[in-house]
Nucleic acid binder design. Structure first.
Lengths: 342, 342
DNA sequence: TTGTAGGCGTTATCAG
DNA sequence: CTGATAACGCCTACAA
């Protein structure tokens, strides 16, 4: 197998009998090229299977055609969805995706990310929650002068820099659903208090309940951390108390699974004696027995919106970037773990 | 915030009072540089916080410092592990990771991947199973002249191009474990027959059982496809038959979860009346009730080995690449879903 | 041990 | 509408 040298813009220019400046023009879709010359050049490009060298292009235009994805993601559940979503939008436009896993709690997170983006000369950066909530990082991104979009549950940035999932509204819907099932003795297991999403979900839930005149007892709000183990711990606390709630809403599916585990241990029937719900609709939700009522975020769509937004920013279409939808609505998914109070 | 232009090699050279050729030398760790000049230059580099421009460097040396990750990954479970593993090794060496999700079944898979690697000028490519098993792709990678490493359950390439997880041995261990629990009426739900891993796991299981004089009845080998739904379907077939196995080993955890679901529906107690085991040790395994006995692959370690191997190849240390371990051993994880036959 | 000069493949300036 | 020509930042024969 002989390795052919890739054709260059010079080859194209030579064979087409024009200057490379003109080839460059058609490459970048300049309007000021004669129709004839354009098609002629286009043909040569096709014949040679020529495709521009990204590095050279980047060197000359100080762009890399590289997008970065910064995530922490202890659960690692949406990662594939996000990556596919981003690439679905950017791949055809010639961009690739460089990933940067990191740790939310790391001391060096910001400088770490900065090194990443400057070293790779990224054209744009997408940041997933909860890292996206760090203002230090956001400021650093702004200072870097690069395009960026944050995914979050709160609108903590300008329209062109954010895509928010309305966790609050979704939680309110869960509250409504619980209330309509007749539940009044309801408990909530929170997420880490440092995360905006935790606050949103709790507030939304409270709000939704209050519409039905139901108030969350303070001792039925227990602080979790989104882990399965902590879910178990919190569930024990709730279910072993003298008075027991008839429904538990956990900040995520992991913890909800923990609740199911404890209920099972204690011989409490779900959903007959206890309704349980989570948030995320991750793989657990549908596989666990009984399957979990939960809330699903349109992850893929968020990735699509974020990427679209970002590419518009990169290509100096700020107006466009602002106009791409910045908010998506998660939806309630009812399964077996919740039922009417009997 | 004023955006300073990044310092270039010229700045360093000028300030250090040497030619840029010399700076280049210290950058690339050439030995033929005087100790004085070296430290002098190094100081300037530190002062200026200079770091070489990857694009320019790539353009000149035809390297990109980019590694690619090709995966299909319907389960998306190890993705984060793999990505972190790869970066753990390559990040300090100046490489970044570009991801390329794809579809095993896609007609255009190979050309698609080729476009990816040539467009990004990747220095090396890591391919995850089952895509890694496609010989077409492998051949294309070889032809491309680039470094690559495949992860698989079979040694289908030279030592320097592969890291294999010994699924066969692991399955044999599972067989041994089953046999020691006293099971003889054992069923196996296979994975897609097109995947090597499916074959390895089945063969290993048969082999392990035969050591105990147990033979898998052909009607107790049912063909699954690694999905939860199919697991349910296969479990029904097995558990509704006139004669029922006392143990079921599924090719992965998803299907094993399906078995648990059906057992639950049919009122069959696991593990008292039926032992169930899976493969992967994904999140489901530990969260499901009862938790699943399964097999865990050292995913992170595989990623580390593969990356180490690949970087050695890239840097022309073929001998080294061959000598990095090419095989890892998955381990049996015993949980609640299996028990002694009573 | 160090420096000179040319090239890598594009983009972009500025004339024509 | 088109074409020389100079960057872009770094590497590398080839010299000295």
């Amino acid at each position: 197998m002989i390795k052919m040298k890739q054709a260059t813009i010079n080859d194209v220019a030579r064979i087409a009998g024009v200057s490379k400046r003109t080839v460059s023009r058609v490459l970048n879709g300049s309007l000021s090229v004669g129709e004839n010359t354009r098609t002629k050049i286009q043909n040569v490009i096709n014949d040679l299977k020529y495709s521009p060298n990204t590095q050279a292009r980047g060197l000359a235009s100080s762009r890399s055609y590289l997008l970065g994805l910064i995530y922490d993601n202890p659960d690692a559940l949406y990662l594939d969805d996000v990556q596919r979503g981003v690439l679905e939008v950017c791949s055809n436009l010639g961009y690739e995706l460089v990933v940067h896993p990191c740790r939310y709690k790391s001391e060096t997170l910001v400088q770490d990310c900065l090194r990443f983006i400057s070293r790779s000369k990224l054209d744009g950066i997408i940041v997933l929650p909860p890292v996206s909530e760090l203002e230090d990082l956001a400021q650093a991104l702004r200072d870097s002068g690069r395009a960026y979009v944050r995914l979050s549950s709160v609108a903590l940035d300008d329209a062109k820099h954010i895509v928010v999932s309305d966790d609050r509204a979704a939680s309110a819907e869960m509250a409504r659903y619980f209330a309509q099932l007749g539940h009044e003795h309801i408990a909530f297991i929170t997420g880490p208090q440092a995360y905006k999403s935790s606050i949103e979900r709790m507030e939304g839930f409270k709000l939704g309940l209050s519409a039905y005149g139901i108030k969350l007892r303070s001792d039925w709000i227990v602080e979790g951390n989104n882990s399965y183990e902590k879910g178990i711990e919190c569930a024990r606390q709730l279910l072993l108390a003298s008075e027991r709630p008839t429904a538990i809403y956990a900040n995520n599916d992991q913890m909800a699974a923990g609740v199911l585990k404890v209920a099972h241990e204690l011989g409490i029937q779900v959903p007959q004696q206890l309704s349980v719900a989570g948030f995320d609709d991750n793989m657990l939700a549908s596989r666990v027995i009984p399957s979990l009522t939960t809330i699903r975020r349109p992850v893929r769509q968020m990735a699509l919106l974020a990427t679209t937004k970002m590419i518009m920013s990169i290509e100096n279409n700020d107006k466009g970037a602002e106009n791409v939808a910045a908010k998506v609505a998660p939806t309630l998914v009812v399964r077996e773990s919740t039922a009417k109070l009997t």
